[in-house]
Design a protein around this nucleic acid. Structure first.
Lengths: 311, 311
DNA sequence: GCTATCGATAGCATTAACCAATCAATCTTC
DNA sequence: GAAGATTGATTGGTTAATGCTATCGATAGC
């Protein structure tokens, strides 16, 4: 049984005339006769009664076949329609993973931008660790992710988006406030608040300031397992210690302004490179590109955006 | 788009593996790859995401296509099933036309016989004149008919079933009752009751007894337009006149036995040949044959059945 | 770095689908 | 009733499609 044969059956049932049906199908009459006969042989039933006279009539079996055939073609059209919709890379949800230390500072700007650039592509967001997101991306459980470490996984591609310098956050009355810029060494004696293990930002801070690493092993730096940068920031504001924040985490907060002082690093400030990553085989390249454009269109203030030319 | 392609899509969606899907479809793997690619090109959408690793995943578009495809195959199976049922000539209703002067005397026996021989083929009956039934048969509004005149229409076939002699019906106290058999001439002086024009039996009686024909034109024979043999029989029983009946109309009536006397014709009695007719193109030969067998299996008493050998 | 696995590609053989021409049966018309 | 017109079935040959074998490129795991 073939869709073509069913199409011919519908035409003959409609026209009640092999010649006209053939014309309607843009084929020659023998083609139609043979096709109908083939289907009749396969089903073992006569579908049409060829009377000698002008008109042919449809047998009850033919009626039923024609009825089901028309329902089949409704579904076929449904397939074509839904394919036409899905054709657009920017339609249908995009599952986006974002690491904990980016999400709260980027998404409030990114989401309106995406609504503007791709209004028919809702974002299904997930916040998690780099490692977890990478696994989910490889398994196809998410479609793209925003992370801050180089991606070197087989089957994955990535593009850098922006380079984000780190800053030091001090309580309002801290001695270091007197300096316009601090160095890694300045922090050695301080009580440093760090994210728990698993957060890549923790590792990046420790790598940028080796002295902290020593402090951490010596028990001076206070690690807050599974906590968030926001929690740490509030603790700094309350005077518990100092910390290092990515610059996007230092904007948009007004309540702390009186209690929190920010200072840049002196000379070659440490930074992290935020990238977007996706499966090489992901079939919606425009969705990725649009997401990238949306991030770059976002006003992130202190960051150094990677423009397309720098790719 | 092809049913084969959709079958392949379903297999890949189910197995999530081109090789296994090809095996399940009894084709080689390249066949499947090419077919899927062809459908993807036609729809303009990727249906599957071929990751480098072992498993492939189904895109949202692929999910929808697979879902609709499985519904399509349900309908295809439905076509095959209903065709398998319709394959049996003896299933589904048979539209049977019977002339007025046969129906009441044959159907009470024929219907139980048909219920026995073809329990899944209900009879949709219509009583009408030979002419009307012939037209309806040619137009396909009925499938077969039982008539008493030779069928010589293009596109129609017929077979004789039985030869039915005529008998004379007399009121209980009629003088002709004394004779064991009557002749056509005996009826010349009688008040003859005849069916109205249009009934073939009227014409057959007039042809068998030319003297009646003369009487009819002379006003002696009483024509009862559009009436029935039953009405005429009751009038004979009440003494209005005499009539000629086909022998099947003279059985099974007990109420009239005291009031009605039947006499056969003497020498070469007139008769009518009852036949079954159908369209040459009617696609259920077994239905016709079964109907013929059912008529022949009926106990019609006085008739001379035409056995298959006499065809 | 080597091997195994998976899907894509190329080349070739087979099948089918299709058309033009013709045929057989029937209906219509003169 | 014979000639012409109409209709679906049949035939022969061409083209497109489908399928298979062999091979390739990419990837993952040892």
């Amino acid at each position: 049984m073939t869709l073509t044969e069913l199409k011919y059956v519908l035409a003959v049932a409609r026209e009640r005339h092999f010649g006209r049906a053939a014309e309607a199908c843009y084929v020659a009459q023998p083609t139609l006769s043979v096709a109908i006969k083939k289907l009749e042989d396969e089903l073992g039933v006569m579908l049409f009664e060829r009377g000698g006279g002008g008109e042919i009539s449809v047998t009850p079996a033919g009626e039923r076949v024609a009825e089901q055939a028309s329902r089949i073609f409704e579904l076929v059209d449904g397939i074509k329609d839904s394919a036409a919709v899905a054709k657009d890379d920017l339609s249908g949800p995009l599952r986006l993973g974002v690491i904990y230390t980016i999400a709260p500072y980027l998404l409030p700007w990114l989401i309106p931008e995406m609504n503007k650039l791709a209004p028919h592509m809702p974002l299904m967001l997930e916040e998690n660790y780099t490692k977890v997101l990478t696994e989910k991306l490889k398994k196809g459980e998410i479609d793209a992710m925003l992370i801050a470490t180089p991606v070197e996984e087989p089957g994955l591609l990535s593009l850098p988006l922006y380079d984000e310098p780190f800053q030091v956050a001090l309580p309002a009355a801290h001695p270091l406030r007197k300096k316009k810029a601090v160095t890694s060494a300045d922090l050695e004696a301080e009580n440093i608040l760090l994210l728990g293990t698993g957060h890549c930002f923790r590792d990046q801070v420790l790598q940028a300031c080796p002295c902290l690493n020593r402090a951490a092993s010596g028990g001076l730096a206070k690690t807050l397992e599974s906590s968030s940068l926001e929690t740490i920031r509030h603790m700094v504001a309350s005077g518990v210690g100092v910390t290092v924040l990515p610059c996007t985490a230092t904007r948009m907060h007004y309540v702390d302004d009186d209690l929190l002082t920010l200072r840049p690093f002196k000379d070659a400030p440490p930074s992290r490179l935020v990238s977007i990553a996706w499966r090489k085989s992901f079939p919606r390249p425009k969705a990725i590109e649009t997401l990238r454009q949306a991030v770059l269109a976002t006003d992130l203030g202190c960051v150094a955006k990677v423009t397309p030319g720098q790719r």
